Amino acid sequence: MKRYYLKKTGNRAAGGVSVTQVYLLLFAVVLFVSGCGRSSSPPLEKLKTALVNVPSYSILLEDMAEEGSFSKTYFHKYRVIQEDSQWSSDWMEVSKDYYDQYRDFLGMCIYVKTPEKEITEATPPGYAYVGNPRYGEWRQNSSGQTFWEFYGKYALISNLFGGWYRPIYRNDYTGYRNARARHEPYFGRNREYGTRGRVARTVKPNFYSRKQARVSKGKSAFTRKVANRVGRTRTGYRSRSGGVGK
């Protein structure tokens, strides 16, 4: 898991950046990301530094992993979404504290930057752009529900989030704004977002299968360890009993 690179989809970067600048940016990101490992600077900060000249983007926590039994190593994988392109990182090693800090936010945006604001609280994909007429508008469906619709060149934003994006209704957005006012992450009206939510379970089933396999492996190792200890104890007891009976 110690390879670090980024993949890109989309034809051009946000803000009219040229193709040459895109590849220069990609190269800069690779340089920053490749040095993550166990360095003191978290990968999120390195990505933000590499993207300092990009006016609008979101960083989504796309996957997490743990390796090892007694001495564990922790990894993150990110998706960087710009206004008409997206970049996906490979596995990036993080510290245990950093892993624990974001443990609940699988499939959520852990940092968003727009020309108007920066958001550091974990948010569901796309919510940071809602309410801004630059990106879209509120519409009403046939059932009378009010939902947010991205339009024009920003219509791709929902697709760039991949399977993580879900339609955003007015009631959900109100809940999100209330959570932001309290400086809290918003997991959805029914807590459908984040590591414990149904969205992550649908989009990233491998995360849960890896987790279950790790738990099962740990239980098996513990069972074998207990069995070995019990075996040694019984053997010793019989030996001592035999000595007393002679």
Rank of each mutant, 00 (worst) to 15 (best):
G126Q: 01
L61W: 07
Y57D: 00
S18I: 07
S241N: 13
R240M: 10
D90I: 01
Y135Q: 07
S239P: 00
R12H: 11
L25H: 01
P167E: 06
I59M: 06
V22A: 10
E137Y: 06
I119Y: 11
N141G: 07
G126Y: 02
V215S: 05
R180C: 13
K7M: 08
A227T: 13
V33K: 00
Q101R: 15
S95L: 07
I157E: 00
R234S: 11
R180V: 14
N228F: 12
S69Y: 15
G231C: 09
R214K: 12
P125A: 03
R182D: 11
P124R: 10
Y99W: 14
E137H: 09
S209G: 04
Y99L: 08
V203L: 07
E184L: 13
F105C: 04
R234D: 09
K96A: 15
Y176I: 02
G175A: 05
R189H: 08
R134L: 15
L47W: 00
E137N: 05
G68I: 08
K204V: 06
K117R: 14
S158M: 05
G68H: 06
F105K: 01
R198A: 11
V226G: 04
G162S: 04
S69V: 15
A155L: 09
V94I: 12
N171T: 08
F32A: 10
G37M: 04
F207C: 02
T235A: 15
K8Q: 13
Q86F: 03
P42S: 10
G131R: 09
T9P: 00
P42Q: 04
Q212G: 02
I119S: 10
A213L: 11
V19K: 13
D84S: 13
R12Q: 11
V17T: 12
E184P: 02
I110E: 01
Y129G: 03
D100M: 10
R214M: 14
T73D: 15
S39A: 14
R210N: 14
R191K: 13
Q82F: 11
K46P: 01
Y111S: 03
R170E: 10
R229D: 09
S158Y: 00
D63N: 13
T20W: 03
A181H: 05
G197T: 13
Y74Q: 05
R196Q: 14
Y169C: 03
G231A: 12
K8E: 05
N171M: 01
F161V: 02
V33Y: 07
G162F: 03
P43T: 12
N159V: 05
G16K: 07
R180G: 09
D84Y: 03
Y173M: 01
Y99T: 08
C36E: 04
K117W: 02
E184G: 00
G35C: 02
E66C: 13
K153S: 12
T146F: 06
Y99G: 11
G194A: 03
G194P: 09
L106G: 03
K113Q: 11
I157V: 13
G37W: 01
Y98D: 15
T73N: 11
V30K: 12
F32H: 02
L24W: 04
G236L: 08
G15F: 05
L61T: 01
Q101C: 07
V19H: 12
E118S: 08
Y186T: 11
M64R: 14
V19A: 14
A221W: 09
Y151Q: 08
E62Q: 07
L24M: 12
A65P: 00
E118F: 00
V19P: 02
R79N: 07
F105G: 00
